[in-house]
């Protein structure tokens, strides 16, 4: 059997494996934009908390949500390997949760990502999530070198994204039903959220000035949620998440294997608009930080506030193959 190396195919696989964690609204796991906030006077069940966290992380509070390009400012993901080598990828992303017309009613959401730097420069990806959970998601990738669109299968939960410490399960694919949940308590968050410390406050290409570590969540009330995986022989046994008791923002997740802490993910959240008197879950990520304790590898995704926009008047046709084809190399 002859096995030929096909650069196009290789690049395609790379695209699927490195699609950003910003593409999140791809699995709804029984949660959608109609999920209501629990009553204020009662402590929700562990399962209910997991569903609320899913709601916040998939931006169901918005009709559409974008982290776009504003001039030269973009979202950037910085990876630092255990040897100290630093790489960065800039990207934009647009999510649409509003599909109500008769022809679109089978669609749950569509998500468009465009990469602007690194090996994936000029690559675009459009993901379609259907309301029918049995139906597979569509992954369409625009390959600039070939000037063609290719379709792909959904990545694995434990696939690392673009060499980062985040997996597809961490950021996109894991549904509340994939784990058993247990509420272990309620307390105050005591520490600042992590960053790549020697890059704090420094000017960085695309993102401008990188943020300082976020300490403003200290002393906020959080639930401790223990989530034990239902998958066999999995890379972690359980994880502990720190979840804001009001907004259901998950500030921190600790991953354990054989009762040893193996990985940490911190997320800094911000309310999109302080005047917005509505849903406390209408939040966005300001940054994600991940540390793999087994290797010392770090990842830091920074989303500058000025690139965030939501509920924009955009036609659904924006989330289509046509937009992918328009991407400039």
């Amino acid at each position: 059997m002859n096995i030929q190396f096909k650069p196009g195919k290789w690049l395609s696989c790379l695209c699927v494996l490195t699609i950003s964690f910003f593409i999140t609204a791809t699995a709804f796991g029984g949660v959608d934009s109609t999920l209501e906030l629990p009553a204020e006077d009662e402590i929700p069940s562990a399962e209910e908390i997991a569903r609320q966290v899913y709601f916040a992380n998939h931006f169901y509070a918005f009709k559409n949500f974008s982290i776009e390009r504003r001039g030269r400012t973009m979202t950037v993901l910085i990876n630092r390997s255990s040897s100290g080598k630093v790489t960065a990828t800039a990207l934009e992303r647009h999510l649409n949760n509003k599909y109500q017309s008769a022809e679109d009613e089978v669609i749950q959401s569509r998500d468009l990502a465009i990469f602007h730097s690194g090996k994936l420069r000029g690559t675009g990806m459009l993901i379609t999530e259907y309301k029918d959970e049995e139906k597979n998601k569509d992954y369409m990738v625009w390959l600039p070198a070939l000037r063609k669109i290719r379709r792909f299968a959904q990545p694995q939960h434990d696939d690392a994204w673009g060499g980062s410490v985040f997996t597809f399960g961490d950021v996109t694919l894991r549904k509340p039903d994939d784990e058993e949940h247990e509420l272990i308590g309620k307390k105050k968050l005591r520490t600042c959220l992590g960053t790549i410390d020697d890059l704090e406050g420094k000017h960085y290409r695309y993102a401008g000035e990188l943020p300082e570590r976020s300490c403003r969540h200290i002393n906020k009330e959080v639930y401790g949620l223990k989530s034990t995986t239902r998958f066999d022989y999995w890379w972690y046994d359980y994880r502990i998440s720190y979840i804001d008791t009001t907004s259901f923002a998950d500030y921190r997740t600790l991953y354990f294997k054989d009762d040893e802490l193996i990985k940490v993910i911190d997320r800094d959240w911000g309310l999109v608009d302080s005047d917005r008197e509505g849903d406390p879950r209408a939040l966005f990520w300001k940054y994600w930080y991940g540390l793999d304790l087994r290797t010392g590898q770090e990842s830091w995704a920074v989303i500058p506030q000025k690139v965030v926009s939501y509920n924009k008047k955009r036609r659904n046709s924006f989330w289509s193959e046509k937009t992918l084809r328009k991407i400039k190399r």
Binding site: R190, C192, D197, I240, L261, V264
Partner: peptide, 9 residues
């Protein structure tokens, strides 16, 4: 950082 989050946990 890890010491701090362990203390918190």
């Amino acid at each position: 950082y890890v010491d701090a989050i362990k203390a918190d946990y």
